[in-house]
């Protein structure tokens, strides 16, 4: 029983964390009047139509698809270009190596807000404002510094014997990268890909500024717009259903792949 207060503290925080999430999921099955009159009781009967209404009428389905396209595209670009840059910086000596490395790495510590105004006009002048391509390029660029930082350390820690053997066998530099080093770096790639996925999937500020057309909204942006728009305030159950659609896939995927995701998500802060 000595451990009782300790369990109490842990259980308390578990409730504080999980209860609002459970409450939102429960509310998404209620009718509007149930939400308004009894905010924290169970629904009398589950209202699945809330979800179909949110998915189609409130465009959550469209937003979800937009998010998948933009984040997927950006993730591929970041991993490819960031991985290449990290590898070249980690394993080749050339003049300016350190300068390029620091050019990438230090930008992580600049507030995004500082770049916001010129970034908006840069994207606009390139004719990419409100396009998926524009958002993909900017997402990928903003995720690259951390990717370089993390994979740089990872590539340096890999042994060079295999690469040297490949060189002796006549493999090209590109071949060594794609066929030897990338497969060897897989654990690091998985961690950084998970980290980037979470970061990009959860982006709010960049799409808010660079993606003004409601049809193109990404999920977080679209849901936030719905919740603050006056016209939609009356459809509480639909909003809760939208919120649940936005939360649940990520949480379920997390419970299944918990080990990898915690390692990936905390990758930045662990040495």
């Amino acid at each position: 029983m000595r451990r009782f207060p300790l369990h109490l503290a842990l259980a308390f925080w578990a409730v504080v964390t999980a209860f609002p999430l459970l409450w939102a999921v429960t509310s998404s099955f209620k009718s509007d009047s149930e939400i308004l009159t009894s905010p924290w009781t169970l629904p009398a009967e589950p209202r699945w139509d809330n979800f179909s209404r949110a998915w189609s009428q409130a465009s959550i389905g469209q937003y979800f698809l937009n998010s998948v396209i933009v984040v997927g595209g950006a993730l591929v670009l970041t991993m490819l270009f960031g991985g290449l840059a990290a590898y070249a910086l980690a394993r080749y000596r050339f003049p300016g190596n350190r300068a390029v490395y620091y050019l990438f790495v230090t930008s992580q510590f600049f507030p995004t807000f500082l770049a916001l105004v010129p970034l908006f006009f840069t994207v606009e002048q390139m004719g990419l404002l409100g396009t998926k391509l524009g958002l993909i390029l900017v997402y990928a660029t903003f995720a690259t510094p951390f990717t370089v930082f993390f994979l740089h350390a990872f590539f340096r820690s890999l042994p060079s014997a295999v690469a040297e053997a490949a060189f002796i066998d006549g493999c090209t530099h590109w071949g060594v990268f794609f066929r030897v080093m990338l497969p060897m770096a897989r654990p690091g790639l998985v961690s950084v890909a998970i980290f980037n996925f979470l970061g990009l999937w959860n982006q709010y500020l960049l799409p808010l500024v660079l993606n003004p057309d409601p049809e193109d909204y990404v999920l977080a942006q679209g849901l936030a717009a719905l919740s603050t728009s006056q016209g939609y305030q009356s459809d509480w159950s639909g909003l809760f259903a939208g919120l649940t659609i936005a939360m649940l896939p990520v949480l379920l995927a997390y419970v299944c792949f918990q080990r990898y995701i915690q390692a990936g998500a905390t990758a930045g802060a662990v040495k």
Binding site: A14, T17, L198, L219, A220, L223, M247, A265
Partner: peptide
């Protein structure tokens, strides 16, 4: 459980 909020967008 404690990690749940970390997975949600700040907008969500």
């Amino acid at each position: 459980v404690f990690f749940f909020p970390q997975l949600l967008s700040v907008a969500i």
